[in-house]
Design a protein around this nucleic acid. Structure first.
Lengths: 143, 143
DNA sequence: CCCGATATGTTATTTAGTTACATCCGCGCG
DNA sequence: CGCGCGGATGTAACTAAATAACATATCGGG
């Protein structure tokens, strides 16, 4: 059951399990970040019932860089572009009005952080960079 | 009851309420980050009983920069140095072995993020930068 | 003295994430 | 074939994190 379950939309990787594919598909269709429980609610019709089923899929997906966790939101997004998990450090700008999330990679930030790490002896395994504020659209809006 | 309740250790600001002072004191004495519930447990003897009492104090303290929230840990630390809240962006390096947290300010990172914001039209209100990994001490340890 | 703003206290509830345990499925190997 | 092992699944119960709703108190100014 590994390949071609049906005519689903997009194929990110050919070796995803059913649950992983369902979760990633849900994230991909969402307009913004979703909590694990949001995802669960949208997948009840597909037979998923327990939070753990979602968390397990999310773990694998985030490990592989196909999804990202937004720490400051306790929520998840689908990775915006395929190259991202090659460039280690990804940053997010989260709009507090409309909820939209922009994913961007600033290599300069990553090298800054690497520089600090080297200087201090810290050995980083994961980096989280999140901005909260207003996106361009919302910032220019009246009230 | 705003000033000089008792001979407590250190005075960070003269206008903290009793609960705020208790919470900040707890954070200051802790060796590492504490969750809100950790703090609550340590303050039962002082009469605090409900999570909300802790969260309210933490809100005020983080607003004023006297404490910081570690998003990737759902935990809080006492601000390490008095100057920090003048330089907007603070970064944290969190050791996954010993739990120690180092707070550092890299102005270069802040200006990078400001630069991206300006270019993209995003108006940031808060920035989160957290490294996970091993501190110098733990990284050099055998197993 | 009264009033509005701010801080508190308390209970219950929602949201987030984990532990523990049983099952199932594909696959390599004797 | 049949055994067994590792990875994925399913389910229930639970712990942890955060908030809602409501009642009370405290303080400072007009």
């Amino acid at each position: 059951m590994t390949q071609s379950h049906k005519g689903h939309d997009h194929v990110w990787a050919d070796d995803l399990t059913r649950n992983q594919e369902l979760v990633l598909g849900t994230l991909a269709h969402a307009h913004g970040p979703l909590s694990a429980y949001d995802i669960l609610d949208r997948l009840r019709d597909d037979g998923l019932r327990a939070p753990l089923q979602i968390y397990r899929a999310l773990d694998k997906l985030t490990e592989r860089g196909l999804a990202h966790r937004l720490e400051s939101l306790n929520a998840f997004v689908c990775c915006a572009d395929a190259h991202c998990h090659q460039s280690g450090c990804i940053a997010f700008a989260i709009c507090e009005r409309c909820g939209k999330v922009e994913e961007f990679a600033e290599p300069a930030i990553e090298s800054e952080l690497k520089g600090w790490s080297k200087a201090s002896g810290f050995v980083p395994s994961r980096m989280t960079v999140e901005l909260r504020g207003l996106c361009a659209g919302c910032a220019s809006q009246p009230a």
